[in-house]
Amino acid sequence: MLDDRARMEAAKKEKVEQILAEFQLQEEDLKKVMRRMQKEMDRGLRLETHEEASVKMLPTYVRSTPEGSEVGDFLSLDLGGTNFRVMLVKVGEGEEGQWSVKTKHQMYSIPEDAMTGTAEMLFDYISECISDFLDKHQMKHKKLPLGFTFSFPVRHEDIDKGILLNWTKGFKASGAEGNNVVGLLRDAIKRRGDFEMDVVAMVNDTVATMISCYYEDHQCEVGMIVGTGCNACYMEEMQNVELVEGDEGRMCVNTEWGAFGDSGELDEFLLEYDRLVDESSANPGQQLYEKLIGGKYMGELVRLVLLRLVDENLLFHGEASEQLRTRGAFETRFVSQVESDTGDRKQIYNILSTLGLRPSTTDCDIVRRACESVSTRAAHMCSAGLAGVINRMRESRSEDVMRITVGVDGSVYKLHPSFKERFHASVRRLTPSCEITFIESEEGSGRGAALVSAVACKKACMLGQ
């Protein structure tokens, strides 16, 4: 009897593995994704193909990295998701002549009506938060230079001027797309009239992360975010950046690689679950690469896999709870928690219980395998993109072996128990001629924006502006 049951459990697990095998990517698959990513990057950089390229390769006008001589107080704003952060950054000489960066910050959550109302409502709310922060720190009387981390696709015309191309991540505030974001912020500050600010720089969160990590390690020339969304930036040779005049030196390019796949480059790798996630998203047909990796989508992918296993009578005796059938019910943090389970399955059992399920031991094991399959594919897909960037940098610099540091931020990278190990191992397999160091950014977005502002202020002083 026991043997029969054991055989049935083994057969069930084997069927589960057959279904989950769809998520496995072979090294040849990853090399294919990497080569296609490089081709799209090239198209994004070139003037004649930029418009139709899915990977936009947006110039950021960040050319210099901090040298350690900029000092002063800077205000930093960070808008990239449902939370908005205001930070005071003091850049100065530390002990023994070292450079020191001290920060104080406060988080504000953005109400739904500000995210989806008008641009005026959104930026009025942001300036209200700045006003509140300055009151708390008794700094209303000071006109501070301000660095703005704005983590949406922007076409820069200068370091302090950028046109919002399109909202992502659930934002829909009308009247912002096609307009200068810094102008919208300046107008809102003017409307309030109770404080003055000098907006000197606007950067993407990947750029802010790279600059913040450069402060720790001067070989950091790539910034990457794996959180709600997924994106990367890197220092490109100016001669390859056709959208900006000049051939000397390097400029940081914001790849906006989340949109890779929007022209069909990933079609052969998309599964039924991916198509369902895409169809029910706020932007169907867009940001397809990001939807395979980002935390906004990972939990939902797992939920759809679990429903398939229920329908195949391989999980929960073929019956799903009402909660499990509800879109968004299986949160991405559950994926991390399930994979963090120590082996007694308590954590998995508790999560499934909150979803109205009474799982068996085998159910718990199957749910864990589903989570591992989805998150491992995410790590491997992400590795193909980064390997594409790094191999490109090595080739354009004609280096036999390139040493490089990548600064990384984002909740999936930082909080998932195995993502970074799987990701690092896969990147290294795909970049055999590179020695890569990964560092995690601390308060990256805010500190990085302030350091970019410090560079901009120093330049302005040198130019006598």
Results as ranks from 00 to 15, higher is better:
F74H: 12
Y108L: 00
M115K: 06
S280F: 09
R392A: 02
R250P: 12
S353N: 09
G261H: 03
K12E: 15
A282L: 05
E399A: 12
T431L: 04
Q347P: 08
R186V: 09
G44K: 01
I439V: 13
I110Y: 05
I439H: 09
R429M: 14
Y214M: 11
G261V: 01
L357I: 10
T60K: 00
G193Q: 13
S151Q: 14
G294V: 06
Q24K: 15
A6K: 07
M107N: 13
E22R: 11
A282T: 15
C371E: 00
F150E: 10
P66M: 06
D400F: 08
V226P: 03
Q337T: 11
Q219K: 11
E128R: 07
K142Q: 15
E216C: 03
G80E: 08
G318Q: 02
D262H: 14
E96R: 12
E67K: 13
S69P: 13
K346C: 08
L386I: 09
H218D: 10
D267V: 06
S340I: 12
D247K: 03
K15E: 04
V200C: 09
R308A: 09
I404H: 01
T168P: 10
E9Y: 08
G193N: 03
E312F: 13
R327S: 14
E237W: 06
L309C: 05
A6D: 15
R325T: 13
A379C: 12
D400T: 03
L134W: 06
T437A: 10
D158W: 12
G44I: 02
Q24P: 02
L88W: 12
R358I: 07
V401M: 13
L276I: 05
T354R: 05
G68N: 11
G175S: 13
D132P: 00
L357Q: 06
F84H: 10
G295Y: 12
D135C: 14
D113T: 13
E300T: 00
S411W: 12
V408N: 03
V310A: 15
G94M: 05
M393K: 04
S418A: 10
T49C: 05
G448Y: 07
P284G: 09
G94L: 10
R191E: 10
W167I: 13
G356W: 03
A208W: 14
L165E: 13
L352G: 02
D400S: 06
G294S: 12
D341K: 10
G249L: 00
E421F: 10
A454C: 12
A173I: 07
Q323V: 09
L324F: 11
R303Q: 07
V16E: 14
E17Q: 14
D400L: 08
H137S: 09
I159C: 14
F123G: 10
Y349F: 12
I351Y: 02
G72V: 03
D267M: 06
M139F: 12
T60G: 03
P432H: 10
G223P: 01
E372G: 10
V222R: 00
G264N: 05
V222K: 01
H141A: 10
M402W: 14
L184Q: 11
D187G: 04
I225L: 06
A387R: 00
C252G: 03
D4L: 03
A119G: 10
G328V: 03
T342F: 08
A384M: 04
T405I: 02
T49D: 06
P432N: 03
L77Y: 04
R429Q: 11
L243Y: 08
V277K: 00
R63K: 10
D363A: 03
G246W: 04
N204L: 07
S109W: 08
A114K: 13
D267G: 07
K291M: 06
A11D: 15
R186I: 04
D42C: 13
K56V: 07
C371P: 00
S396F: 09
R5F: 06
I351K: 03
Q106H: 05
T255W: 04
A119H: 05
K32L: 10
G81N: 04
T342I: 05
V207M: 15
V305K: 01
C371A: 02
D135M: 08
G444R: 09
V55Q: 00
T65R: 11
F316K: 00
E443M: 11
R327A: 14
G44P: 00
L184T: 05
D341W: 04
D344R: 03
A460P: 04
D73C: 01
V408T: 10
V302P: 00
R43E: 11
N313V: 06
W99V: 11
P153T: 13
E221T: 09
S131A: 11
V182L: 09
R36E: 03
S396P: 01
G258M: 06
R422E: 08
L185M: 09
G285T: 11
R447P: 13
Q239N: 11
M34Q: 12
V412S: 09
K459W: 07
F123R: 01
C382H: 03
K296G: 13
P66D: 10
C213E: 04
A320G: 15
M393F: 03
M298D: 11
A450V: 11
E196A: 08
E245D: 15
G444H: 09
L357P: 03
L79D: 01
C213W: 01
C364D: 01
V401Q: 05
T65L: 15
G223Y: 03
T116Q: 15
A21D: 15
G295Q: 13
N313F: 05
K296E: 07
D198G: 09
D29H: 15
V244E: 08
P417L: 04
K172D: 06
S373P: 04
D262Y: 11
R43D: 05
R428G: 13
G68R: 08
S280T: 12
Y413V: 07
R275G: 06
R250F: 09
Q323R: 09
S445P: 15
D132H: 07
D274Q: 00
G294E: 05
D160S: 13
V241L: 08
V367S: 01
G285C: 03
Y108M: 01
K140D: 04
R308K: 06
L352T: 06
R394M: 04
E52W: 09
E17C: 06
V427N: 01
P59G: 01
L185Y: 08
R369F: 07
G295F: 14
E322M: 02
Q323T: 07
E52S: 12
L243I: 12
K296Q: 15
M107P: 05
K420S: 10
E236T: 02
R155S: 15
E242M: 01
N240S: 07
Y297Q: 05
F438T: 00
R428K: 15
D3H: 04
L243Q: 08
L88D: 07
L309V: 02
S340F: 08
V401N: 07
E300W: 00
T116S: 09
